[in-house]
């Protein structure tokens, strides 16, 4: 993927494989949005951060078949830690992000060590329980987290010592966008690696994987930790760009909404996570602006329609479109 290859796909048509094409697309789309909606950078950044979070969920649900309703545990932990780290330890954003990722992975490992021995409904309940536990802890520890008022008043140093996190959110936006593109690249590598294939095997049949000699629990732990660190980084980004961390970052609502976004876009494919997040967030934004009391209705309708008519999510539209193009080209 790093070298550009010219592949003759068939006798008629040759196409060139551009390395890093998906990542370039993400960056270009971001830049375009930056120029079209210069006054909505805060919202755009929120979408980017959320996309990263949903991507972490896709690794679990879409690729490994681990259904969770507690992914916010890692997001919120990463957010609070990034905020506290900036406040008390060091204001550098990248170090803060690293800490958030480590915390996310740590929480995933600790909670996963007992949760991943269970399956199905018990597992889902436990994921909810762990997130609720952290939520309650953050609520109790008001002196540290600010409780209901949120954690604020921490300053983040300029990125690389050069780019200040400005009032308009330009730095925050491009910073988040770059992290998302990087994470996307890592995910793309991961799902096409032997480790990624093992994840798909686990999704299909864990018992069969055991009969092939796979140390299933160890695989699950590592995947859970990777997804946890991604969620932690997303939380850290949120803290650094919004400069406030609220209790909702640990909430059940956040976990559930991320799941809705993923299912909307399509599980088990990286683009699904991105598309689903963008559509959900935009519809949410616009519907809430039109009528703040009924935006959930719009989202609900969208989700029901998608699940009924496009069981593989909105990405299925893309598949249909591609199939249609192929047929068109053949009949030429």
């Amino acid at each position: 993927m790093f070298e550009s290859k010219v592949v003759a796909s068939n006798a008629v048509k040759r196409h060139v494989k551009v390395p890093l094409l998906p990542e370039i697309c993400i960056l270009v789309a971001g830049v375009v949005c930056f120029y079209i909606f210069p006054s909505n950078l805060g919202f755009l950044t929120e979408i980017v951060v959320m996309a990263l979070f949903v991507l972490s969920l896709d690794l679990l649900l879409g690729y490994t078949g681990i259904a969770t309703l507690g992914q916010a545990a890692m997001f919120g932990a990463g957010a609070y830690c990034a905020g506290l780290f900036a406040m008390y330890v060091h204001p550098d954003p990248l170090i803060g992000l690293l800490v958030a990722g480590i915390i996310g992975a740590g929480i995933a490992l600790v909670s996963g060590s007992f949760m991943l021995r269970t399956h199905g409904l018990s597992f889902i309940i436990l994921t909810i329980a762990v997130a609720e536990l952290l939520f309650a802890a953050a609520n109790q520890a008001q002196d540290i987290t600010g409780g209901d008022n949120g954690l604020y008043g921490f300053a983040v140093a300029p990125l690389f010592g050069i780019f200040e996190f400005d009032f308009y959110g330009r730095t925050g936006f491009f910073y988040s966008l770059s992290i998302l593109a990087l994470a996307f690249l890592l995910m793309r590598q991961l799902v096409r690696s032997p480790f990624g294939l093992a994840a798909k095997g686990l999704r299909e049949d864990q018992e069969r994987m055991r009969a092939l000699g796979y140390p299933v629990y160890r695989h699950l732990m590592i995947i859970y930790a990777i997804a946890g660190s991604m969620a932690g980084v997303a939380g850290g980004l949120s803290a650094q760009t919004v400069q406030v961390v609220g209790l909702q970052s640990l909430s059940f609502t956040l976990s559930a909404e991320a799941l809705v976004m993923l299912i909307l876009g399509g599980t088990g494919r990286l683009y699904g996570a991105l598309i689903g997040t963008v559509i959900f967030m935009v519809v949410h934004h616009m519907a809430a602006a039109l009528d703040p009391s009924t935006w959930m209705l719009f989202i609900g309708l969208l989700l029901v329609t998608t699940v009924l008519f496009l069981p593989k999510g909105l990405m299925q539209l893309f598949d249909i479109f591609m199939a249609w193009i192929k047929v068109g080209r053949r009949s030429e």
Binding site: M1, Q189, L190, S193, P194, L197, A198, Y214, H219
Partner: peptide, 21 residues
């Protein structure tokens, strides 16, 4: 892919992350 899963386990390569299959 079914066979690759078996072979990767035998070779203890199932934890290889960053190499394409």
């Amino acid at each position: 892919d079914n066979l690759r899963l078996a072979i990767l386990q035998l070779r203890r390569q199932s934890f290889t992350f960053l190499r394409r299959i």
